[in-house]
């Protein structure tokens, strides 16, 4: 326990408090002293009475503010929850839209490949050649190009035969 000497309305008071709470006690005593000294005239007991009444009034007013703020606080919490819920829904919708977009892109690519294949077959038919199924990938394109190189080289050699 700690001993603290307080001075309120000009009179000293010796009180005990838990260790470490001395400053807090002095701070509270200073508030009471300020209120008591603001009451002009009257006895010491009357000054302390009015100081007590003023502090009780301030306490009640503070409690009223807290009670009024509580519903607002609840509204704020509800608004935050609603906003979070809407944000989560928007994120879900965004992810779904991205998935749909990727699927549409993949479908468009597949359609473009199918179109290229059909065009290759059409061109082969137009030139009266047997249809060589167009390869589905660049690997087959390159292989066809290499064969074209070799056949062209062959044609040149055959043409050069005396």
């Amino acid at each position: 326990m700690a001993d603290v000497r307080l001075s309120i309305a000009g009179r000293p008071y010796d009180v005990h408090c838990a260790d470490g709470q001395e400053d807090r006690i002095r701070q509270l005593a200073a508030i009471i002293d300020e209120k008591a000294r603001s009451v002009q005239g009257g006895t010491e007991v009357r000054q302390l009475l009015f100081a007590s009444l003023m502090l009780a009034d301030e306490t009640q007013e503070a409690r009223g503010k807290v009670e009024k703020a509580a519903p607002q606080s609840d509204s704020l919490r509800a608004a935050v929850a609603l906003a979070e819920s809407r944000e989560a829904a928007a994120k879900d919708e965004l992810r779904a839209a991205q998935t749909r977009e990727q699927e549409a892109l993949a479908e468009a690519r597949a359609a473009a490949e199918r179109e290229a294949t059909a065009l290759a077959e059409l061109e082969a038919l137009r030139q009266g050649a047997p249809v060589v199924p167009a390869p589905p990938s660049g690997r087959h394109d390159r292989a066809l190009m290499q064969i074209a190189d070799r056949i062209e080289a062959l044609a040149t050699k055959v043409e050069q035969i005396p």
Partner: peptide, 23 residues
């Protein structure tokens, strides 16, 4: 016609075969 690479290759092959045939 807007042809892709494989169609161009097929065209080249056909022309080369025609040259061989003529020779």
């Amino acid at each position: 016609l807007d042809l892709d690479e494989s169609s161009l290759a097929i065209g080249r092959i056909e022309r080369a075969l025609s040259r061989i045939e003529k020779a």
